[in-house]
Design a protein around this nucleic acid. Sequence first.
DNA 1: GATAAATGTTCTTTATAAAGAACAATAATA
DNA 2: TATTATTGTTCTTTATAAAGAACATTTATC
Lengths: 112, 112
Amino acid sequence: MPKSVTRTYSRYSREAVALLAGLIRTARKEKKLTAQEMADRTGISRGLLLRIEKGDMKCEIGVVFEAATLVGLKLFDADETTLTRQRRQVEDKLSLLPKSVRKPTKAVDDDF
Amino acid sequence: MPKSVTRTYSRYSREAVALLAGLIRTARKEKKLTAQEMADRTGISRGLLLRIEKGDMKCEIGVVFEAATLVGLKLFDADETTLTRQRRQVEDKLSLLPKSVRKPTKAVDDDF
DNA sequence: GATAAATGTTCTTTATAAAGAACAATAATA
DNA sequence: TATTATTGTTCTTTATAAAGAACATTTATC
């Protein structure tokens, strides 16, 4: 990540990450897991779990989803089977769309 | 990230990330945006967008959600207002739960 | 109130994510 | 079919995410 990129986020995605973070922390407490216990089970450090539960935008999506999964959160409101079916559906739809997005040429052959 | 941690992911979170990735790519094509255009608008490199759309677990959650937002995907099936309300609701719930999870002491004073 | 567990914060080290460029492969149009 | 935009891949460089430890703070129980 050269050139020190300072990222900006829309309100929407910040809210979404914050919500997910809150849901994770809430679920952990309802399951009566300490941060250390949950971190161990998720295979991450306690520090990272802390950042996840604080809604840090820079955590890898993989570990965030994994933490959410560990405490039983349903992403996309779907169980595993539904998730897989939806994913396949999207892949199918994608395979029908043009493989590359072609911008119409500027000159539209209007030399009449 | 010292000690070279090789992460493992549950099927569930892999499917969830893959679904999100597919939804993003589909939405981009439906909006007729090239990868470069969308990357520019999102403020990321084309290479990163490629990884996002391939479902790379190691992308930051912030940029993934930001890309999703840019093409109009509704995370948690909610608009911004709903998202904020839900977030506040979770914070409130959280404020009522014990601030730390205390494990019951092993010795339960059973010396009678 | 005392105490110990849990949480939060800060530091250093190290593996690696991301930028950016260059090139190859593919596929949409003329 | 030829052309060229788009997509995909690979490389190097650099900023930084994450581990792990150490310490401070908070808070649930005794």
